[in-house]
Every structure is written in structure tokens, then in C-alpha cells.
Amino acid sequence: PDLGLTQLFADPNLIENLKKNPKTSEMMKDPQLVAKLIGYKQNPQAIGQDLFTDPRLMTIMATLMGVDL
């Protein structure tokens, strides 16, 4: 199971919303991170391994779920 990750990354406004959010806007200036996020739309399971190697993803996930870290 993808634990709902498919829906989190399926939002067509995902990148724009993250660019507008004060907690994630600075991160979204990294083209490699943006490319990763776009890739998760097609393969949400890929985030599982990346969560352990890129701490920014935890902040992004929390933001998408509405959790304040």
C-alpha cells in the first residue's frame, strides 16, 4: 500500500502550492528536489527510500498533510 501518498502527490498544483508555502518555498528553488517531487506523481513508492536520505521530504510531507512540525 502507498499509505495515501498517491493522493498527496497527485495534486496538479503540488509544486506551485509548495512554492507559495513559507515552510517549503526555499526548498522549491532546488531543481533536483522539484524533479523528485514530479517523479513521485508517477511512482509514489519511490519516496519511501528518499525519506531516509533527504530530510526536506519529511517537511514537505508534513506540509502536504497539514501537520505543523
Score class of each variant (00 low, 15 high):
11 D>F: 02
69 L>P: 12
2 D>A: 15
28 M>A: 02
6 T>M: 14
69 L>C: 10
45 Q>Y: 06
39 G>V: 09
13 N>A: 10
49 Q>M: 12
4 G>T: 15
46 A>K: 12
36 K>W: 06
15 I>L: 09
15 I>D: 00
53 T>W: 09
31 P>E: 10
36 K>D: 04
35 A>F: 04
41 K>E: 08
28 M>P: 00
50 D>H: 05
48 G>D: 11
23 K>C: 08
4 G>H: 13
17 N>V: 12
36 K>I: 12
4 G>A: 14
66 G>N: 10
66 G>M: 07
5 L>Q: 05
51 L>C: 08
35 A>C: 05
50 D>L: 04
1 P>N: 11
21 N>Q: 04
23 K>T: 08
2 D>Q: 15
27 M>V: 04
24 T>G: 01
53 T>M: 10
61 M>R: 03
48 G>R: 14
7 Q>Y: 07
51 L>D: 05
26 E>T: 07
37 L>I: 12
62 A>C: 09
37 L>S: 00
9 F>E: 01
55 P>T: 10
42 Q>D: 15
41 K>H: 14
46 A>H: 09
51 L>R: 05
68 D>R: 02
44 P>C: 05
20 K>H: 10
46 A>M: 12
46 A>W: 11
29 K>W: 04
15 I>V: 08
12 P>G: 06
47 I>C: 05
25 S>M: 11
8 L>C: 07
55 P>L: 07
45 Q>D: 13
48 G>V: 15
48 G>M: 15
53 T>L: 11
53 T>I: 10
61 M>H: 04
42 Q>G: 11
68 D>P: 01
21 N>T: 03
64 L>G: 02
21 N>H: 15
14 L>E: 02
1 P>S: 13
5 L>S: 06
15 I>G: 01
60 I>M: 03
26 E>Q: 09
26 E>S: 08
65 M>Q: 10
45 Q>A: 13
9 F>T: 02
3 L>P: 11
45 Q>P: 05
19 K>V: 08
28 M>S: 01
60 I>Y: 01
45 Q>M: 12
48 G>H: 15
19 K>G: 04
59 T>M: 11
32 Q>P: 03
58 M>N: 08
17 N>G: 07
11 D>Q: 07
7 Q>K: 15
38 I>D: 11
16 E>Q: 09
48 G>F: 15
43 N>C: 06
45 Q>L: 12
44 P>I: 11
14 L>F: 09
